[in-house]
């Protein structure tokens, strides 16, 4: 879907990105993770030619982007930036209609899509005639997301889309974003410096430093099989939390004992060890029931969590 092949970017002889390669499959989400100045945003912007690569080639949907007209290319790629970039002199609905108008949609088509997206993003109907300055930061970011999604682009580029929000707002916007039906089947590249966000949203993570990819792979690989000290120390601060979070209940479901209890609190196999630990400690339970899609139940006690965690560490 997206293939970056040995791309580099020099600004006046200074190398901002050097020799970066990656591949994002259709429907996958790839995260570019790293500290500020590591070249992750530059890498992202090369994908829609906001920044032209100095060398290397990029293919999106099987076509080399350097051979396309930048404006036409960008209209087929959704783009959300950290500072929402909403036009202050446009209403919410005018802001959302920018790309459809560029694509020449009919007015009632635009209106229909706008209404549906605003509803999905939990923005009230009467917001359509408001101006960005009348909205809160979280609402503005929702509008920015709606604007990027309205034309249903197959590819979405997100540059720290929740970065400017406070932690509570960030969590709720991110949750509603993740639940959007329009997001299914989208190929996404997300730039973030937030490790939790990266693990939660990324199928695949590229950790960058000084313009290079230090390690790329699934989140478990980065946590449990760090390629070097940089990768290890990058996650050290929240390591325990992160590690619990990436071990899903599904992965240990089969080794857990059957449960007959029905009164206990339920978790699903979609959730992870951290969620289970939280329930157990907050509600002072001895065990918690886990249900899978087939309706089978298993019970999980504190000792199971410990065992699963150590096993994962050893395997890493």
């Amino acid at each position: 879907m997206i293939v970056a092949d040995h791309i580099s970017k020099h600004f006046n002889g200074i190398e901002a990105v050097s020799d970066v390669s990656f591949r994002v499959g259709a429907g996958e989400t790839m995260v570019l993770l790293g500290t500020s100045g590591c070249g992750k945003t530059t890498t992202l912007k090369m994908l829609n030619r906001l920044i032209e690569a100095t060398s290397g080639s990029i293919e999106i949907l099987g076509r080399r982007i350097s051979e396309e007209k930048p404006e036409i290319l960008r209209r087929s790629i959704g783009y959300v930036s950290q500072n929402n970039g909403l036009f202050p002199h446009y209403t919410v609905s005018e802001n959302i209609a920018v790309v459809p108008k560029l694509l020449g949609w009919a007015a009632n088509d635009i209106q229909e899509h706008t209404e549906r997206l605003l509803e999905q993003l939990k923005l009230p109907e009467n917001f359509r005639q408001k101006y960005p300055s009348e909205l809160s930061g979280g609402q503005q970011q929702r509008v920015a997301i709606a604007r990027a999604l309205i034309a249903d682009p197959p590819v979405l580029l997100l540059d720290e889309p929740f970065g400017a929000l406070d932690p509570v707002t960030r969590a709720s916007v991110r949750k509603d974003f993740a639940e959007l039906p329009a997001l299914k089947q989208k190929t996404m590249v997300l730039v973030t410096h937030d490790v939790q966000e990266a693990l939660e949203m990324g199928d695949h993570i590229c950790l960058m430093d000084k313009g290079r990819i230090v390690q790329s792979g699934a989140s478990a690989d980065l946590l449990f099989k760090p390629a070097n000290d940089f990768v290890r120390s990058f996650f050290d601060q929240q390591r325990f939390l992160l590690e619990l979070k990436i071990i899903s209940l599904r992965s240990i479901f089969n080794v857990l004992p059957n449960s007959k209890a029905t009164y206990q609190y339920y978790l699903t196999t979609e959730q992870n060890l951290w969620d289970a630990l939280e329930i157990l400690s907050v509600r002072h339970l001895n065990e918690v029931i886990i249900r899978n899609e087939k309706g089978e139940s298993r019970s999980l006690a504190m000792a199971d969590i410990q065992r699963a965690y150590h096993q994962a560490k050893q395997q890493g």
């Binding site: 829609n48 906001l50 930048p70 404006e71 036409i72 290319l73 960008r74 209209r75 087929s76 783009y79 930036s81 950290q82 500072n83 929402n84 970039g85 909403l86 036009f87 202050p88 002199h89 920018v98 790309v99 560029l102 920015a144 604007r147 580029l157």
Partner: peptide, 27 residues
């Protein structure tokens, strides 16, 4: 004019003329 705004305009696929006429000049 806030560069974040013109960049998002570019990012959505507006041409330089469209950006000038609909974003930069009004702002």
């Amino acid at each position: 004019v806030d560069p974040a705004i013109t960049e998002s305009a570019r990012g959505m696929g507006m041409t330089p003329w469209q950006i000038l006429a609909s974003v930069e000049l009004p702002l």
